[in-house]
Design a protein around this nucleic acid. Structure first.
Lengths: 231, 231
DNA sequence: TAGATTGTTAATCGATTAACAATC
DNA sequence: TAGATTGTTAATCGATTAACAATC
């Protein structure tokens, strides 16, 4: 149990543990070992024990972890012990999909509204959730004390949106626009660029070594061509 | 220029460099230094130079990198020098959004088809892309030599989908289902769990220290309660 | 008590940063 | 030549893994 800040890599794994615990509890499993969590998550048992130990001693030596108890603790650690109010900026395809998905599947968040500048979508509903004009974002953010926003607007609009919403109280942003966004000190921006995920996947779709050795060969040929000219 | 495999963290940054180069070229910038790339990407200049050096020497000392030349090289390195054929499994909200998004914005991929088991969506089109019955996936994968698939089906269906498509030639999968999926040796699975991204973001939305010290205090109180009982 | 598994410290591994010679 | 910036080697930092005492 340290008091210094926990690293991002650790924080990224906590929701995975939570999801696994939810599944175990659904199957009436009451106790799970770090080994068991390892099999479900793919992370090593040592790593899981170490991750949890940053926050406290939640297990019982010789036995393992009580699933319901550990789940409760994780909820408090992550900050999901009460529903988090969230807004979505951008009512395009991705914004709509994320809104529908989280409204139904993500029990821990409460999407208050979706905002857009396009008059054609403003006034509609996405499931139960209203699409409001972007001008009303400051008012809604303040009124509901909202801290978390999802941004699904085009790249060109993203920075202006960040400036506006951080000025009115947003402190954590999940950004889907393919751009590096700047925000005031203390605001946490997490990027989720699906294009980049897909492109880095493509790297692995063809045999890595073959492609790179071909590239290497080309470079050598270019080099000797150059040498030849110099002679 | 090493020949051992390049780490995942490096591969994840390559598409970022590519995106920045695309933007620079659009603005008619012909030369960029590692410092310049650093400012646009947020990665350190040293790291960028080192990342590129894994694949070759693409810059000019004293000058920097030619944007068009480096872009060409990166395309070959990542494997985007010809369009990658991709399929999407699952025509729900997320599958539809990803299909539309990539069909328009991602010039490097060519979505051949979307597959679904639901008869109500089969036969429709998403933009120009047909929604086909999942039974036809093996045929289409083989016919077009497709290696890359995006999976946006529910958790319960995801593993069966993986088993089926890897049996017919898929070697790289971008999985959006919240589950750890198992695949044969040599198949690369990359997970993109939006729920987990959002939950780890929520961790940062409230002051980390305050929440954790409260948790710590609770733990100590529980401990002394226990002590009391033992007296 | 014997067996099991946690929590924690030490050892290892890998990734990032610093430094600088090479060179345009 | 002087100034700038790459490519690469060495030093540092951080994260993962190994090991094991504590303890149920």
């Amino acid at each position: 149990m340290t008091s210094r800040n926990v690293s991002k890599t650790v924080v990224k794994r906590l929701p995975v543990y939570l999801r696994i615990l939810d599944n175990l509890i659904l199957r009436d499993v009451e106790i799970v070992s770090s080994r068991g969590l390892s099999l479900e998550s793919g992370f090593s048992a040592e790593q899981i024990r170490k991750d949890l130990a940053y926050f406290g001693a939640f297990g019982t030596r010789g036995t393992g972890y009580n699933t319901a108890y550990l789940r409760e603790k994780l909820l408090k650690i992550i900050g999901l012990d009460q529903k988090t109010r969230v807004i979505v900026i951008g009512a395009g395809h991705l914004g709509t999909a994320l809104t529908r998905y989280n409204a139904v599947k993500n029990l821990y968040v409460d999407i208050i509204a979706v905002f857009d500048r396009d008059r054609r979508v403003v006034g509609q509903n996405i499931g139960q959730i209203p699409v409001l004009p972007f001008e009303r974002a400051p008012e809604i953010i303040r009124e509901h004390g909202i801290k978390v926003a999802l941004i699904t607007v085009p790249e060109a609009a993203a920075q202006r949106v960040v400036d506006e919403i951080t000025a009115h109280g947003i402190t954590a942003i999940l950004n889907f626009a393919p751009a590096k966004l700047h925000a005031p000190e203390g605001v946490h921006i997490q990027n989720s660029d699906l294009t980049i995920d897909l492109q880095s996947l493509i790297y692995y779709s063809t045999a890595e070594k073959e492609r790179l050795s071909r590239l290497q060969k080309e470079a050598e040929e270019a080099k000797s061509q150059k040498m030849l000219k110099l002679d």
